[in-house]
């Protein structure tokens, strides 16, 4: 019988994705062998997670700090006045010159595992979930485009409708309202959940009817069949869990859960077994929970194996 011995340094290479093909193969063989020491593997993975650091620009932060705290002398203020005039003129010309080039498009983006809150010029608040992108033209901050998932708290302004359009041309129009729009490109559905107020869901391409929503309703658009389905939501059960740092799903098939996991952890999840992909799970996790821990817990109710293919950087579920 073949025996596998793996050193911690090899494991570290594998987990920190700096290993070469020989080591990757070795570790993967080890993982599928009886010698696999799962506790050790988890330990090293957790060390890797905990030692993560971001590298912010201290210089930039310093500069910003000093401009805030330094007392402004009168001369400085005088200068500032002129500088402001100058900037207005320059930017005036600039805008005039580049109007056609869409330089006035404002884009806010999040990467995987990141969330942002944005206050729009009209006072509306937007919470942007992981792997999402929100954009609008500087002149029309109430006409938004969204890719991914966002929660909107809309400032009242009856004269100017507030609309959110998704990549599949679904438009959600609101008047003084809070709602959630979910439209990840790789997801088979686009989903709108309404919490307060009134919302109208329509599309210039996909379907003709305009769907009116009342609070605690959800409208799901199925991209393949072009079906529009309206249903009730139970806010206590799932709702907009991501806003409080949770990944939650109730009786959802694994394939759909995988889309949320990808947005959160940044790695594609591929299924090699249809039966598992279509299995339903219910669960609630903090977004800080490592993905392999989530897999471990899901495994309790339905047996499957998962492994990370470090070459393609995706999880394989069998």
């Amino acid at each position: 019988m073949e025996h596998f011995k793996i050193t911690e340094t090899e494991l570290w290479e594998y987990i920190s994705q700096t290993a070469d093909d020989t080591t990757i193969l070795k570790v993967e063989k080890w993982k599928n062998s009886p010698d696999f020491d799962e506790a050790l593997f988890t330990k090293i993975t957790t060390i890797h997670k905990h030692t993560a650091t971001k590298d912010p620009s201290v210089q930039q932060a310093k500069k910003r700090f000093f401009t805030t705290v330094k007392p402004k002398t009168r001369i400085w203020k005088e200068m500032l006045k002129y500088a402001a005039v100058l900037i207005v003129i320059i930017s005036g010309i600039y805008v005039y010159d580049t109007l056609s080039l869409d330089k006035n498009l404002i884009v806010v983006q999040t990467t995987f595992g990141e969330q942002k809150s944005i206050t729009l010029p009209d006072g509306s608040n937007v919470w942007l979930n992981a792997s999402s992108k929100l954009s609008y033209h500087i002149k029309t901050p109430r006409t938004l485009s969204l890719e991914g998932e966002g929660f909107f708290e809309v400032a009242k302004d009856t004269l100017h409708p507030f609309t959110v359009t998704t990549p599949d041309h679904i438009t959600v129009k609101a008047l003084g309202t809070s709602f959630n729009v979910k439209s990840y490109i790789d997801s088979p559905t686009t989903e709108t959940k309404l919490l307060t107020g009134k919302v109208e869901v329509s599309s210039d391409e996909q379907f003709k009817q305009k769907v009116l929503m009342i609070p605690n309703e959800k409208v799901t658009f199925y991209k393949h069949t072009k079906e529009v389905v309206k249903s009730k939501i139970d806010l206590n059960a799932s709702g907009i869990a991501w806003r409080e740092g949770k990944i939650q799903f109730e009786n959802k098939i694994f394939r759909e859960i995988a889309i949320d996991l990808k947005a959160q952890f940044g790695k594609q999840i591929r299924f090699k077994n249809e039966d598992i992909a279509n299995s339903k799970f219910t669960g609630s996790f903090n977004t800080t929970t490592p993905i392999n821990e989530i897999f471990e817990i899901l495994k309790i109710s339905k047996e499957f194996t998962y492994k990370l293919n470090t070459k393609t950087n995706e999880w394989i579920i069998e």
Partner: peptide, 20 residues
């Protein structure tokens, strides 16, 4: 700033998960 900024920022990010 040189001494503490990185550590404080990284700590805040670990808890808040929002760069801005």
């Amino acid at each position: 700033f040189d001494k503490h900024y990185n550590k404080l920022y990284n700590y805040a990010f670990k808890v808040l998960k929002e760069t801005d």
